[in-house]
Each structure stands twice: as C-alpha cells, then as structure tokens.
Simulated assay, not measured.
Amino acid sequence: DLHIDSLIDKWRQVERNGLEPDPFVRHLANWLQAHKPAPAPMTLVHGEINNDNLLLGSDGDLSAVDWEFAHIGDPREDIGWYRTVSEGAVPPDLLADDIEGFCARYRAVTGLGADIINPAAIGYFGLLATVGVYSTLVGGPAAVEASPAAPVLAAYMS
C-alpha cells in the first residue's frame, strides 16, 4: 500500500509543480487512491520494459536489457508500462490479443492470484506508469516559466 501510495503521490506532485492547477490530474490521483488494487509482493521491476528493451536470442530465450530504471516495486508496474507504451510508442502490443490468457499464464508461473493479476489491475498500473511521461511534458514549460536560464531541453520539451 505504501509503495502504491508513493506512485500516486507522483501524480499529486505533477499537479502541484505545474504552471497552474490541473483538476484532471487531481481527479486522476484521487481516483487512483480510491481504486487501489490488491497489494502484490514486492519484486525486482525493470522500470521501462518495452519491445525496444527485449532481445530474442537465436535459441529462443528472451532477455531484457537497459536496466537503468530498475527498482524494487510492484511487478504490475512493468506490465502496465508495457501495455501503455506498446499501444503507440513502441508497438506491437503482444498482449493485446489475449490479455486474459497472459494473466492466466503469469498467475501460473508466479503463483499470484486473480485478485492481483488481472486486466483491470494491469490497466490501473498503466495509468500509474504514465506519470513520468506526463511529468516531463508539464515540467518543461514549468521550468521555462520559472527561469529564463532553463535548459534548452526544457524549452524543446514544451
């Protein structure tokens, strides 16, 4: 619960640090707080799992690379992030055609129950995962507004 609360708080920080109040972001944070899924055991989370960070070896083994965002967290963070970015930014979404089947296989391998691994929980973590991208989009203009000496990247991001 505390870990999920810390992820929700990132949305609240985005709203506080933006150029102006954002009722949608505040509503989203409140919705996330009110609809938290059942807690999962903490585990190693890749932090940016997507098709660009997966390698399929000639022997059929799958490897994940690019671990700079790795942390201890909720395993659904990776699944939610994957679903979010693979729908548009880094296609294809390999889970889209059978998310129920994926959840069943994930539960069989990990021993986690349907109360923890299910499509609704994965969607929930997809919302949590987008805070980093949204924060960058809001943070660029806020940095430029706060200081004329803001980095060029901040202006470019706005």
Rank of each mutant, 00 (worst) to 15 (best):
E87L: 08
P41G: 10
V85H: 09
A70R: 02
V65I: 15
P41S: 13
L62D: 00
S58A: 15
F69G: 00
N30S: 15
P92R: 01
G47T: 03
S86W: 00
A89W: 14
K36I: 11
D59C: 09
Q33V: 07
P75S: 03
W31H: 14
D78G: 10
G101T: 09
I49Q: 06
A70N: 09
P75A: 03
P92L: 05
E48W: 05
T84L: 15
D66R: 02
L32R: 03
V85W: 03
G60L: 13
G57M: 14
L95Q: 07
D52G: 13
Q33G: 09
P91L: 06
G47N: 10
D52I: 03
L95K: 11
G57C: 14
G73D: 05
R76Q: 08
P91T: 02
H46C: 13
H35V: 00
P75Q: 06
I79G: 07
L55E: 01
T43I: 04
D66S: 05
I79S: 06
L28H: 05
A34F: 00
L94Y: 10
N30V: 09
L55T: 03
S63F: 15
T84Y: 14
A64E: 00
I99F: 04
H27M: 12
A70P: 07
D93A: 08
V90A: 01
H71A: 10
H27S: 13
L54H: 01
A64P: 08
F24R: 06
V90M: 10
A34R: 15
F24K: 10
L54R: 12
H46R: 09
E100A: 08
T84G: 00
D61R: 15
H35K: 12
V90Y: 14
I99K: 07
N50G: 11
D97H: 08
G47D: 00
E77P: 08
I99C: 01
D78V: 06
V90N: 01
L94E: 13
G57F: 11
Q33T: 15
H35S: 07
D61I: 05
F69K: 04
R26A: 15
P37V: 04
K36Y: 02
F24T: 12
D74H: 08
V85P: 09
V25C: 10
H46G: 06
W81N: 14
D74V: 02
W31G: 02
W81E: 09
G47C: 01
R83P: 02
D74E: 03
I72N: 13
D98F: 02
F102L: 06
D59L: 09
P91Q: 07
G47Q: 04
R83Y: 10
I49N: 03
D98V: 09
L44A: 12
P37G: 00
A38Q: 14
D98I: 08
H27G: 04
P91E: 01
H27N: 07
H46F: 05
F69Y: 10
E87M: 08
S86R: 05
A89R: 11
L44D: 11
A38S: 08
L94P: 00
P75R: 05
A89T: 14
L94W: 02
R26S: 13
E48P: 02
D97M: 05
W67L: 10
I99H: 09
E68P: 15
Q33D: 15
G88M: 03
L32S: 01
